[in-house]
Write a protein that binds this DNA or RNA. Sequence first.
DNA 1: AAGCGTATCAACCGCCAAGTT
DNA 2: GAACTTGGCGGTTGATACGCT
Length: 333
Amino acid sequence: MRKPDLMIKDHRVNNNNNKSKLRKGLWSPEEDEKLMRYMLTNGQGCWSDIARNAGLQRCGKSCRLRWINYLRPDLKRGAFSPQEEELIIHLHSILGNRWSQIAARLPGRTDNEIKNFWNSTLKKRFKHNNSTPSPNDSDGSEPRISDHVTGGHVMPMHELDIMNICMETFSSSSTSTMQNYVTGSSQFDPFPMVDHNRYDMTAGAAAGLFNMQPPTQVGGAGEIGFYGQYGILEANNMGLERDLSLPPLESRSVEENNNINARPVDVKSNNNNHFNNGCFNNTDDHQSCFKVENMFGFGNNHAQGESLKMGEWDFEGLMQDLSSFPFLDFQVE
DNA sequence: AAGCGTATCAACCGCCAAGTT
DNA sequence: GAACTTGGCGGTTGATACGCT
């Protein structure tokens, strides 16, 4: 991993009076603690303020990244389940390298995590194996022996410390304060992405926030919410309920896709062109996206090789397609 | 045990869009 | 409307763990 380092070159910071050196590289447990404490006490706000007020010599961006990818309490850790794998493959066939959109549909997973998983594991698997990879295939995503393992839940080295901070913070407040945190009835909600109905108001809730016990994934009596950074898609025990704050899956225009091979890659404006920016990096690979799709038998209703017109995808069909994943506890009407 | 190659993943970089001054 | 700030995203890097010889 990267060594902790000092940086001076953040021009934005250098423009103002704050010329203190900013740290770079790996986060130390102490820094994690500071950020975690600050976030738990003050909630999310302007990231550069957070960095400053939390006493961190980091840029706001770095704090944001650390929080989102590592410290956020609703993160699920450990290997991707076969169901998650399937969903990633499926969503990638639809969305391309729009990792944040894919992550928004995978509870507790970050875009970075999914991106890494795709680039390291799935992409390689497709490359070297033309057959359908079995969901049960064991690969490098298995937890490392050196990781802390708590009841089957893999915890990185100082996640336990972070959890202690959370517990400590909550226990230093009154129970009702904690209840306010968890229910979101206080002035701020430090965990806007957390399904507050999912955790009880005991000290165990903090453990729950850290996923000490992985949430039931399949057929969990509607226990698990389906949430992402854009919102919560929640199915509660009483019935299905959809929060439409989750962004719709985007499709591309016919023109956009038809022109993929015809125009030079514009590095600066290719964000909407996932076939250029990395599904695989050439036109053959562009097709292989669909081959993968076909290989898995997903989306046969829309991915028919070259005859596909992506702009014609209808959202309902797409959602029906997604709802074929049994572990997603929402249904499309 | 040592050396080497590969896999993993945290974190950085650069770009962009939206908001603010 | 230009300049600046901030947040967000995808691509990439590089340190470390791991596995094989």
